[in-house]
Each structure stands twice: as C-alpha cells, then as structure tokens.
C-alpha cells in the first residue's frame, strides 16, 4: 500500500541531535538578545522618568491654571463675563450679548489679574460714557468658594467707588442659576429674595425695570414698616389687647405708589 510505503520511507528521517541542540541554543541566545534589547537602559529609564514627570507637571499645572474658580459678570449693557482662576487671573472673556461681544473683542484682558481687568473695563471709553450717563452697572462674583467670592467682591467694590452707579454682589453658581431662571441679575435676585421674605406677593418681574437704589428703598421701607408693626404689636400685647393687622399686599402697594 502506498500509504504504508510512504510511512516507512519517512520513518527513517529524524532530526539530528545536533540540529535540535543547536536550535535550542540559538533560540535561548535570541531570547536573551531580545529581552536585553527591550530592557530599558538605566539612562534611558531616567530620561523616561523625567519626561513623564515633566509631562505630569505640565498637565497638572495646565489644569491648575486653566480651571476657573470664579466668574465675574459685568452687566451694564454691554454685558461680559470674566472667568477667573484660583490665582486671581483672568483666563476667559465672554460677551453675554451682542454689545458684550464687541466689548470683549476690543479689550485684551486674558492673563491680567481680575482687578487689572476691571480697571481696564472701567477705563474703556464706551463704559465711561455709559457711566457718565448714569447707567447702572452690576458686578457679580459667582463661585463656589465663598471666601474667594467675598474677597473679590470687596476688592471690586473698592475699585468701583466714585465711578458711578456700580453695584457689586456675589453668590454661588446655584444662586446665579436661580437668578437666570427668573431673568434677573444676581444682585436684583438677592434683593428679590429679601423682598419676598417681607412681602410674599412680590414677583421677580416687579424688580426687572427698577434701578437698584429704588429696590433698596423698597426694602428699607418694608423693613421699617415691619419694625413699626412689631413695635405696635408689642405695645398692644402689653396692654392686653391683641390686634391683627392686614396683609403684605397693602405694604407693597404703599411702596409702589410712593
């Protein structure tokens, strides 16, 4: 049978021992050579480690510098927003409306401290003319770190002194979002929350067209009225005749008509 004949013929062909041993030796040498080739040399290892360190330092530094920790919105129509990092440097300038885009494009504020940036904005001829015409500017510091917010608000208030109708405020991003939902600037929204405590019937739109001094007067008058009422109640209760007064709506009407 062909099958058997071929098997018998090939049976005599076997690998020489020298061939097997030489192959084993060569493979072992080749394995060592390849392992050494892929093993990084000490100097290369050091260079690689330094490179990785620099890369990490660079990326960490970039993250540290380019992550905003606070925003300053300056609203005088034009409205712009400055992104400020933890080093108090301006890392972004964004127009909040069409005029804001024009103003943002005309100023070079990136890299400056937020105080320098605010000075440059106040010195801008367009802003100067608006403030000269008695336009009201609201400056709001928005951020999650209340200490940074307060520090920045104080610094901006100092700079704004004597410059016109500039009102500074600060708050968290959550508060700023709530203000945006009812279409009020942060300062007016905070005033609205105070007013609502004094008179629950107050609506956000009641404040929209009012200037800040008028809102402050409104708050003052309500607070005075409440103080007056508390005094009356105290006096009446001391005479043993409790008496109830009307509701808050009357108070609001009294203010708005004044």
């Amino acid at each position: 049978m062909l099958n058997r004949k071929i098997q018998e013929a090939y049976q005599g062909i076997v690998a020489e021992e020298s061939l097997k041993n030489n192959t084993k030796q060569w493979i072992q040498q080749e394995r060592i050579r390849r392992e050494q080739k892929h093993k990084p040399r000490p100097v290369l290892k050091l260079v690689a480690a330094i490179s990785v360190f620099i890369l990490l330092l660079g990326s960490g530094g970039a993250w540290f510098y380019f992550t905003p920790t606070a925003y300053i919105t300056i609203d005088v129509n034009p409205s712009i927003e400055l992104s400020v990092n933890r080093l108090d440097r301006v890392i972004g300038v964004q127009g909040q409306n069409e005029d804001g885009d024009v103003l943002a494009a005309s100023l070079d504020l990136k890299g400056a401290s937020y105080e320098e940036a605010f000075s440059l904005i106040l010195e801008d001829s367009w802003i100067q003319s608006l403030l000269a015409e008695d336009a009201e500017m609201e400056v709001a510091v928005i951020g999650e770190q209340s200490s940074q917010n307060e520090q920045m608000q104080t610094a901006l208030e100092q700079q704004a002194k004597g410059q016109g109708n500039i009102y500074c405020t600060s708050g968290s991003t959550e508060l700023a979002s709530s203000a945006a939902e009812v279409d009020l600037p942060l300062g007016k929204y905070k005033a609205y929350l105070v007013l609502k405590e004094l008179d629950p019937s107050v609506q956000p739109q009641d404040l929209q067209s009012l200037p800040m001094p008028a809102i402050r007067d409104w708050i003052d008058s309500l607070q005075q009225e409440e103080t007056q009422q508390e005094k009356s109640i105290a006096e009446e209760s001391s005479q043993g005749e409790p008496q109830r007064n009307g509701n808050g709506k009357r108070r609001r009407q009294a203010h708005t008509s004044s």
């Binding site: 090939y10 076997v14 020489e16 061939l19 097997k20 192959t23 084993k24 493979i27």
Partner: peptide, 18 residues
C-alpha cells in the same frame, strides 16, 4: 518559556525535519 520551547523542539523536531 525556555522549557516550553525545548519541549516543542523535542516533540516536533522530527516532523519539521521531514
């Protein structure tokens, strides 16, 4: 491993040789 390849050489050397 070295052991694995030595085993394979011993086992298949004749076949490869043919």
């Amino acid at each position: 491993s070295e052991a694995e390849v030595n085993r394979a050489i011993d086992q298949y050397a004749d076949m490869v040789r043919r």
